[in-house]
Design a protein around this nucleic acid. Structure first.
Lengths: 214, 214
DNA sequence: GACTGTGAAAGCATTCACAGCA
DNA sequence: TGCTGTGAATGCTTTCACAGTC
């Protein structure tokens, strides 16, 4: 009985795959055809056995005695991560952070497309930003079937985050990228990722303070 | 010989401390005086022994049979993280992401103050944004002693990130918050934190795809 | 009685060494 | 020969159970 090659993939592996992908795209751009785990390791500041193990979770992408074909591997990782097709997203909250994300080029380039812009702040509603018109969140549920978005991005003020989440989940969204500092409560089938740069600043402060103390 | 209570603190602990802090501030705001690890655990979606262990790395903040005093604990965590005073930062790159960070209220509220705005793109230089004037990065090194900033924030295009990093490090910056998708190479004494929401989107895509497949 | 602080056990993730293949 | 794929060993984190304290 041949197993599908997926026992249980560490979360950390997924994060590193993103790094490999980034690196491979750069390498490909520079004309590299083949790369060894050792060379890729140096490029990413990650060690070689780790890379081999990570990749092995998803299949056998390399050629022994040769290495990995850059473009092949890039495609394989994309497929493994599920980013080999376009993902449709809705954005809620058009303060400066929301606008900046709406205008962010990288996301579109990598297959993430914002197909709806909503807000609960009436001040923003009706505005046209980057070919979308901001609608009140209350309209999302009825628009949802035609928008066909799978990922919700929240950039409101923290106090509104849970309310927005509930609304999105009620409308069938199963994945949320949360830029606010609020922790969200969601049903088990919903995935949440937190982007909180304050936390990263705390980590820097901690490191600075503790080396200072030595 | 009484040890300072710091054997080796897991990185994950630092991240969770940020979460506790956030929660405690909310609780304090709502008038709570005392909270048990169990109650805090429910509030943060983290389990109770984990919280107790995390806190124990830094000292004995609780009272047996009672719990933790909310405001006390909040202050203790802030001190442990080294965020009980203001941190000065310089921002490099004033595209839409940079501007949005410059205008972000939360950061200032939490003791992070941007004291200098730089860019290498001549289009932005000279502009006044939120009481700062954008200067060319080449001027940073000489201004650095008087600015007295400790943290650098990079929001340029990815291709410029390494160059900017080198410049910041040369001027004495020891901590970098990197919003670009580039991996940075830095000397051992410099700390780097990556804020890459594309990676978070990848994680969501992966989760969505793999549950879809079941 | 209630809840913290902590050693000991279990569970994960990373590293290593080497077998297996071009 | 050179480099991948992988079981076995190491090192971290998390979990648990309970002793210690208010």
């Amino acid at each position: 009985m041949p197993f599908v090659k997926t026992p249980k993939i560490p979360r950390a592996t997924i994060q590193r795959l993103s790094v490999y992908l980034e690196a491979l795209n750069t390498l490909s751009h520079d004309g590299a055809k083949v790369i060894s785990s050792e060379a890729l390791a140096r490029f990413c500041n990650i060690n070689a056995p780790q890379i081999r193990k990570d990749l092995a979770y998803f299949g056998e992408f390399g050629v022994r005695g040769v290495g990995y074909y850059v473009d092949d591997l890039s495609r394989s990782i994309s497929a493994s991560l599920g980013i080999d097709h376009e993902w449709r997203m809705v954005l809620v909250g058009l303060g400066s952070m929301g606008r900046s994300i709406l205008r962010h080029h990288g996301m579109r380039l990598h297959g993430y497309r914002i197909v709806g812009a909503y807000d609960i702040d009436s001040g923003n509603i009706g505005q046209a930003i980057a070919d979308l018109t901001v609608r009140p969140l209350s309209e999302f549920k009825s628009a949802s079937p035609s928008l066909n978005a799978e990922i919700g991005v929240i950039t409101t003020r923290p106090d509104n985050a849970q309310e927005v989440t509930d609304e999105l989940v009620a409308a069938g969204i199963c994945a949320i990228l949360n830029f606010t500092s609020s922790r969200l409560t969601v049903p088990a089938h919903v995935f949440v990722e937190y982007v909180d740069f304050l936390h990263h600043l705390y980590a820097l402060s901690f490191n600075l303070s503790s080396t200072r103390a030595d």
